[in-house]
């Protein structure tokens, strides 16, 4: 047999690796679920899942942890995408946990830290034994230590000093009842890879990711939108700027960046030369301390 001389480029290689991981999970777990927020990473993950199981439908539901502070457009996108794929969408609301007194909201505080309780409740209620997340190792230092298959104990906790070795493409999903595995198919993707893939595949993302005019004010060096969840303080001046979002998390802590990038190709060009990480540029929740992400992950966050 002779070689076909078909060379795979790096996006092909990343795509194949992610599909492989998703198929392993579908084959070895009884009740997987995929976290889908309508953000770009989970959109790419959803496309990869579509590819992994085509021509069949997704063999798992989509789960969204809704902080109640999301952008309306992103929620509409989420619902439409689930409908197109005829996928079941389960929405777990942080507000329900606040109302039930399971978490306490700090006035004016961020809701992101509260998500962990809601996420763990959703996992317990759905009896999910594997949960796909769109986290990437390049996002943050603690995430750089993550496995593709990340074991969580009965409390949803991550133990970074006692992780299973992960060799070749052999993933170990063994767990006892009540424990589960978080699975990160995009582990080896970078922000630039995600955008290159969106451009190459012509994947639709919410228009917030592209340049648009918006009323914003500056806080801690970030541009925050004027929304019911994020209002300017008296000394913070509001102006209309041409901005786009690099991440679309909770509106109360996700900042926009000044950008004229109007298409996926423009964003690829912009991300190629940018000098700030997406989290550093736009996420107040990761600025709390040097080990903010590590601490949240240990407690069960993604």
């Amino acid at each position: 047999m002779t070689a076909a001389d078909v060379a795979l480029d790096h996006l092909d290689a990343l795509e194949a690796e992610s599909i492989h991981v998703m198929r392993e999970v579908a084959a070895e777990f009884e009740r997987p679920a995929l976290l889908f927020s309508g953000g770009k990473d989970s959109i790419v993950m959803l496309r990869l899942a579509q590819k992994a199981f085509w021509p069949a439908r997704l063999p798992f539901p989509l789960v969204h942890v809704d902080t109640g502070h999301n952008f309306d457009e992103v929620l509409a996108f989420r619902d439409r995408r689930a409908e197109e794929l005829q996928a079941r969408l389960v929405v777990a609301r942080v507000q329900d946990d606040i109302d039930a007194g399971r978490v306490v909201e700090v006035p004016g505080g961020l809701r992101n830290p509260l998500q962990t309780t809601t996420l763990l409740r959703a996992i317990e209620e759905g009896r999910y034994d594997a949960v796909f997340g769109g986290a990437r190792r390049d996002e943050e230092k603690a995430r750089a230590k993550e496995r593709f298959f990340s074991f969580r104990d009965a409390f949803g906790q991550w133990d970074p000093k006692n992780q299973r070795p992960e060799l070749w493409d052999l993933y170990n999903g063994r767990h006892a009842p009540g424990e589960h595995i978080r699975v990160f198919p995009l582990s080896n993707w970078t922000e630039l890879d995600v955008w290159r893939y969106i451009a190459r595949e012509g994947i639709e993302v919410p228009s917030l990711y592209y340049a648009h005019e918006r009323e914003v004010f500056e806080r801690d060096g970030m541009l925050l939108a004027v929304t019911p969840h994020s209002a300017p303080r008296p000394h913070e001046a509001v102006s209309t700027r041409l901005v786009r979002y690099r991440t679309v998390g909770d509106a109360s802590c996700t900042g926009a960046v000044a950008s004229p990038a109007a298409t996926a190709d423009d964003v690829v060009a912009e991300v190629s030369v940018t000098r700030l990480t997406e989290r550093g540029a736009t996420r107040a929740d990761d600025r709390t301390s040097e080990a903010a992400m590590e601490d949240r992950k240990k407690a069960g966050y993604f």
Partner: peptide, 8 residues
């Protein structure tokens, strides 16, 4: 590159 608290 040293990402964990214990490593630093």
């Amino acid at each position: 590159t040293d990402g964990l608290r214990a490593e630093r």
